[in-house]
Design a protein around this nucleic acid. Structure first.
Lengths: 229, 229
DNA sequence: GTCAGAAGTTACTCGGAGTAAATAAATCTC
DNA sequence: GAGATTTATTTACTCCGAGTAACTTCTGAC
C-alpha cells in the first residue's frame, strides 16, 4: 500500500505537474462539478467533496474559484441565471400586466423546483451576509428589470429597492417552505406551482399595481432610467 | 503552577463539583449570557464564548440548553417574544386596519433595530433549516394572530400560510438589508423606520386588504377558527 | 463512615476550512 | 542539450470550533 514502485492503477494521480499541457480544470468545469457534488451529497457539501467530484484537489479549487463564500457566490449566480432564463422563456408578449406577474412567479417557482438542491445549497449555506447581500442585490436588479419590462417603466416614485426586497423576501420564504415541504414529511401534500403562484399574486399584485399606477400618474422619473440610485 | 496547595487566585475554578448547593446556572441565566455574548462578540459567537460569558463550562451549556441549533432556537424565541411585545405595546385600539398594519410593521422594525445583534445572530446562524423552519412557523402563527386581531377574523379562504410566509419573508429581507446598511458603509444614508414602514405598507397592504375583503364577503370558515390546517 | 449518584471540569476526538511545503513536468538559458 | 527556473499539482499540515468522554469532587442516604 505504501510501495510506490508497484502502485496499482488505483493511485489517484501522480504527484507533481501532470503530463498534458492543458490546465486540469477551468472555472466552468469546477462549477459544474460543484453542482454535481451538491446534487449528490446535499446542502452541506464539503470543499473536499467538491474537489473530489471535479477530480482535482482542494488547492486547485481554492486557486481557481476561491473559498467557500466564492463557491456560494458562483453557484448563486448560476442559479439566478437559470431562473432568469426560465422566466424569460415563459414571458409571453401582449399579456395583461397581472398575468405577466403571475407567469413570472410561476416560472420562478418552476425553475427553483427544477434546481432544488442548488437552491437549498445557496440558501442554507449562503447566509453569511456577504454572499446573501450580493445575491439579494443581483436579484433586486433582475426583479426590477422584469417588472419594468412587464409593466413598461417604473420610475423612482417610491423606492424600488424596498419593494424589490419585499418581493424577493416573500418569494424566498414561500419557495423555501414549499421546497422543504417536499423534503420532510408534512401532514398535507405539497401544493402545486400554480396554486402558489395564484396565492402569491393575490397578495402581492394589488400593491404592485397601485405603485405602478401611481408611477404612471406622477412620472417624476423617466420610465427608461435604470434607477441606479 | 502545578502545585495546588499554593494555588493562587488566578486558577479559574477548582476541578469537580463546587461547594455551593445552588445549581450554577439555570436556563434563563444561560440565555441571558448568550445574549450578552452575542452582543459583545457578534454574529459568530462560539459555544465556548457563550459558556465563558455565563461563567460556566461547555458541557453545562450543552446539558442545560443543547447544541448550537438549540441555542439558536432559544434566542429566536427570545427575539420573537420581544418583537411581539413591542407590537402589542404599539397597538392602538380603534385605528383603521391599514394604520394598524402600518403600526405593526413600524413596531416590528423598531424592535428589530433595538435588538440588532440578536436579529443578525438568529438570521445569520439560523439558516440550518431546522431552526429556520421553526422560527418561520412560529412567526407565521404570530402574524396570522396579529392580523386576525387587527382585521377581525380571516378564515381560510386563501391559504393563510402562503401569505403569512410572504409577509414574513418580505419583512425579513427588508429588515436585513436595512440593518445591514448600518453595518457596512453604503452610499446612501440609512432610511428611517417610518419611511420603510410606509413603503412596505404601500406594497403589501392593498393585497392584504383585498384578501380580507374577500374573506369577509365569503366567510367559508368561521372567523374564530385558528386555521390550524 | 461509606457508597451511590449528582454536578462540574478537564481534556479529548472529530471534521472541515484554508494553507504551506514538497514534487514533478515544462520551459527557458546558454 | 544540460542545468536553472517557473508552473502546476499533490500531500500533508495547521487551526479552530462543535460536541463528548472521562475523570473529580461534593452531597445525601443508610
Amino acid at each position: 500500500m505504501t510501495r510506490r514502485t508497484t502502485a496499482g492503477p488505483e493511485r489517484p494521480r501522480r504527484r507533481g505537474r501532470p503530463k498534458g499541457r492543458a490546465v486540469l480544470a477551468d472555472r466552468s468545469q469546477l462549477l459544474a462539478a460543484a453542482e454535481r457534488a451538491i446534487a449528490s451529497v446535499g446542502t452541506d457539501v464539503t470543499m473536499d467533496q467538491i474537489a473530489a467530484e471535479a477530480a482535482v484537489t482542494k488547492p486547485i479549487l481554492y486557486r481557481t474559484i476561491g473559498d467557500r463564500d466564492a463557491v456560494i457566490d458562483a453557484m448563486s449566480d448560476v442559479l439566478v441565471d437559470r431562473i432568469v432564463e426560465e422566466i424569460a422563456a415563459f414571458r409571453s408578449t401582449g399579456t395583461a400586466p397581472r398575468d405577466a406577474f403571475r407567469a413570472a412567479v410561476s416560472a420562478y417557482l418552476s425553475a427553483v423546483g427544477a434546481h432544488r438542491d442548488l437552491y437549498l445549497f445557496v440558501n442554507a449555506a449562503g447566509q453569511r451576509m456577504g454572499p446573501l447581500r450580493r445575491r439579494i442585490d443581483r436579484s433586486s436588479r433582475t426583479i426590477i428589470d422584469v417588472f419594468e419590462a412587464a409593466a413598461g417603466g417604473l420610475g423612482t416614485t417610491t423606492s424600488p429597492l424596498t419593494w424589490s426586497h419585499s418581493i424577493i423576501g416573500a418569494l424566498q420564504i414561500v419557495t423555501l417552505m414549499w421546497i422543504e415541504s417536499d423534503d420532510i414529511e408534512t401532514d398535507r401534500p405539497r401544493r402545486t406551482v400554480e396554486d402558489l403562484a395564484d396565492d402569491f399574486t393575490h397578495l402581492l399584485w394589488p400593491g404592485v399595481e397601485a405603485i405602478l399606477a401611481a408611477a404612471r400618474v406622477d412620472p417624476t422619473a423617466g420610465p427608461d432610467e435604470p434607477s441606479d440610485d
